[in-house]
Amino acid sequence: MSARKKVLLKVIILGDSGVGKTSLMNQYVNKKFSNQYKATIGADFLTKEVNVDDRLVTMQTWDTAGQERFQSLGVAFYRGADCCVLVFDVNVAKTFENLDSWRDEFLIQAGPRDPENFPFVVLGNKIDLENQRVVTQKKALAWCQAKGNIPYFETSAKEAINVEQAFQTIARNALKQETEDDLYIPDTVDVNADKPSDAKKFGACC
């Protein structure tokens, strides 16, 4: 029925408040980091052209805009996601424990056609704070394995550790999802691609 001419990947980042979702996005796209925490304001989605196996794709990474704080994201946020990134803070046990509910929330709200094979990527963030660490790599890997071999990266948005690698994997797995989902996506209109009204099309006859 349709094949999107330009490959646009929608990636959403989920996880508890304060685990570094916005910082990770910002480190990846803008190569910037700020140590000061401020609950997300002004972050919407960041766009980056990515080269995946010699294919140029546009990756849109959607921030929660702070709506995750009271579990009030709404179903629209999840629509049409090609990959879901789950983030926790290796220094806060609760953020790791909550990965289960974030994953469930995604599967219920987004309702992917093939939940078993939907691409997730897990990021254990803030590994630069080594002496405060409470979630071991082993524990995180075991969880990822149990959920169908989800790729796992240990990252630091501050020191830019593993961020590039993680997002490469995110883009590659999202792209796989995109091609599989093509059959189900109808042709749509983008109101922002504002073309002038095509009066000629009709004016030519009569």
Partner: peptide, 26 residues
Amino acid sequence: LYGASELPQGFCRMSAVYGGTYVLRK
């Protein structure tokens, strides 16, 4: 696409991006 409730949710996101606090179930 996906129904008319995408409209209010889009505006809610805009408000959230500019610092609005969103609380469902309350």
